[in-house]
Design a protein around this nucleic acid. Structure first.
Length: 644
RNA sequence: GCCUUUUUAGCUCAGUUGGUAGAGCAGCUCAUUCGUAAUGAGCAGGUCGCGGGUUCGAAUCCCGUGAAAGGCUCCA
């Protein structure tokens, strides 16, 4: 007999060799039917795998991440089986589960598969699923494994096996398909009830662009048809919030082929939104002791040779601008820091001057690969809400903490709740990629980790994600369909002060090197606004939205009164305009509702007589008639509450 | 940059097997002067992304190229 410990701490005895599925059955048949995966001593286990020693066990149902992972991973095997039947001789790469669903990388050789073929594959998968195929696990030696896949012609699998250790290799078989796999898997395929293959894409083998590009098929499966339908509806809804779609509909920004890809054009409404965001941050920064600076959009090549950016990115950037003067070269600035370093160098600094915080909404230009451009989230010309803090080493942590405070204040004011904080450190395997001394890197990494802890941030640590000159703390936010984007960033840099030979005079009259912090709480205005659009679905907070109210005269007879109301509101700094088109009130309401105008103010005979407006709130409806003064009071009250 | 797909009026989209373009909305004009999500009529609007080719004839077929979308790689 062995002792099994459950998550609630209770212990039961079972016979040696019992399986997690049998344990679930012993508790209740209902549980056994719902359970999809299990973990034994914190290792995810097949439900039918024998448990041979005293263990603690957890049973996972659909709502548990582990169960979903197992479900989708098994689904990728099911898809592979279907593909192998439909396209014999194809070669397989890898086929993991992902956040939602799964994919499999496949080498179709000379053959091609198109989106139109996916329906066929889906049907085959459902057909195979109904066969109730079991997933059988088999331990196998490295030699045997190599033999098996070599015979099958699966060169990618052989490559994977070569990197594995003998004794740790397992195969899983479902139906006619056998795969190299660590598991775990479902008991059988019959629980897979709904299948949707979502897209086909290319993906380099092992993520290396020098390797062959395989065909990646993405899919998602569910244990119920209704769950798939729900997911598809969710995707449709998410598309409606896409900032590219809303940006067009709400007339915030546009692109022009003639201006060039990745170079957004801000329309009047978008420009107002952006200006208001800038004003908001400027005010916050002023209270934190930042000093505004302004620098040009280009700089001599020499500047970037000094900073080290030329060596790192020179070839992959916009190429130098030449002048009539032979040999003279300027570069579009890809970042603001070198300029700010030169501002620091403008005069000698005492230790008493520090920290110095230079802030600039600096527009920069980066030659992003064409395939990378994406709406406003990845562009070639964008404006960073940049600042560089020059401080003494002993001030570093405090300064870092203050920046975190600013970021958190912004997120709170704009109601961003779902963000993650990511600490990006050096790749310890590949230190060559980075510039700067080991000692400085360690100090900087330490400072970031400590500051994040002190601020109580929940962080993830990513090795190898640091910038080439220093580690960073990034705030990541998801877009409408779950893609992660980096917004705010805080980076410690010991390198640029060195390269620009920055110094300050200490109390002992000796010269010291300041530490530099790069920081951008929004990240870039473009990307931040993109994410803000998707989070709000275009319904921006009242203080921020370009048009707070639109006055709708019932007919031309009330245009004069509408104008009077508009002027009055503008005098109170309320952004109101008049829709005096010769259209029915119904149409004007509909269109302004769709433009997400927070307040529609309807004025007609009654309103003119009582010097008031009838308020209609976006998405809510008629809220009745109030005096103009009362409306102003209410709206201001609401705006003030948004800053608490 | 790579793979796949898309590209027709300002916007959203039709366009059958190749026979030189069509709707709704927006715009303009006129009528209407309206009480909480689309008033009616008329007019105008397109070298079918761009450049070649095949053909008597190309939005449609072929080649090249731009841009966009979904991924991959990249992201100072």
């Amino acid at each position: 007999m062995i002792k099994i410990t459950f998550p609630d701490g209770s212990i039961k005895e079972y016979e040696q060799g019992i399986t997690a599925y049998e344990i679930a059955q012993s508790i209740s048949p209902r549980l056994a039917a719902d359970v999809l995966a299990a973990s034994v001593n914190n290792i995810v286990y097949d439900l039918d795998r024998k448990i041979t020693e005293d263990s603690s066990i957890k049973l996972y149902k659909w709502d548990d991440e582990e169960a979903k992972k197992t479900f989708w991973h098994s689904s990728s095997h099911l898809m592979a089986e279907a593909l192998e039947i439909l396209y014999p001789g194809i070669k397989f790469g890898i086929g993991p589960s992902i956040e939602v669903g799964f994919y499999y990388d496949v080498d179709f050789g000379e053959r091609q598969i198109s989106e139109a073929d996916l329906k066929n594959v889906e049907n085959k998968m459902l057909e195979l699923a109904r066969e109730k195929q079991t997933f059988t696990r088999k331990d196998i030696s490295k030699v045997e494994a190599l033999n098996f896949f070599d015979k099958k012609g699966d060169e990618y699998k052989c490559e994977l096996i070569n990197d594995l250790e003998d004794g740790s290799i397992t195969l899983y078989t479902n139906g006619l398909f056998t795969d190299l796999c660590r598991g775990p898997h479902l008991r059988d395929t019959s629980v897979i009830k709904a299948v949707k293959l979502t897209s086909i894409a290319g993906a380099y083998w092992r993520g290396n662009e020098n390797n062959k590009m395989l065909t990646r098929i993405y899919g998602v499966t569910y244990p119920k048809k209704s769950m798939l339908d729900e997911y598809l509806v969710f995707l449709e809804e998410a598309k409606k919030r896409d900032h590219r779609k809303l940006g067009k509909e709400l007339e915030l920004f546009t692109f022009s082929q003639r201006v060039g890809p990745g170079l957004p054009l801000w329309l009047p409404r978008g420009a107002v939104l952006r200006e208001r965001l800038e004003m908001f941050l400027k005010k916050v920064q002023k209270s934190y002791g930042y000093l505004p600076v302004i620098t040009p959009h280009i700089g001599q090549k020499e500047l970037y040779v000094t900073s080290g950016h030329y060596a790192k990115y020179g070839k992959d950037s916009f190429q130098p601008i030449h002048t009539p003067q032979e040999g003279e070269e300027f570069l579009l600035k890809p970042m603001n820091c070198p300029h700010h370093c030169e501002i620091y160098r403008n005069k000698p600094h005492s230790y008493k001057d520090l920290p110095l915080r230079y802030a600039e909404f600096g527009t920069v230009y980066r030659y992003e690969q064409s395939g990378e451009l994406h709406g406003l989230t990845r562009v070639r010309g964008f404006t960073q809400d940049d600042a560089h803090i020059f401080c003494r080493p002993d001030q570093l942590k405090e300064e870092f903490c203050k920046v975190i405070d600013i970021v958190l204040y912004i997120f709170k004011t704009l109601d961003f709740k779902e963000y993650t904080a990511q600490i990006s450190l050096r790749d310890p395997e590949d230190k060559e990629k980075y510039i700067g001394t080991d000692e400085n890197w360690q100090k900087a990494e330490q400072a970031i980790i400590e500051a994040s802890q002190e601020k109580g941030l929940k962080t993830t640590i990513e090795l190898g994600e640091a910038a080439f000159y220093g580690p960073k703390l990034d705030f990541m936010v998801k877009d409408a369909i779950g893609r992660k984007w980096q917004l705010g960033t805080i980076q410690v840099d010991y390198n640029l002060p060195e390269r620009f030979d920055l110094e300050y005079v200490g109390a002992d009259d000796k010269k010291y090197r300041p530490v530099m912090i790069h920081r951008a709480p929004f990240g870039s205005m473009e990307r931040f606004i993109a994410v803000l659009i998707e989070h709000t679905g275009g319904k921006f907070p009242l203080w921020l939205t370009p048009d707070q109210a639109v006055i709708l005269p019932l007919s031309e007879k009330y245009n004069d009164f509408a104008k009077k109301v508009g002027e009055l509101l503008n005098n109170y700094d309320i952004r109101a305009s008049i829709d005096d088109r010769n259209e029915t009130i119904g149409k004007k309401i509909r269109e302004n509702e769709m433009k997400r105008i927070p307040f529609l103010l309807i004025v007609g005979e009654k309103e003119e007589a009582s010097n008031s407006v009838s308020v209609r709130r976006q998405g809510v409806g008629d809220e009745g008639m109030v005096s103009i003064e009362k409306f102003v009071e209410n709206i201001n009250k609401e705006i003030n509450e948004q800053f608490k």
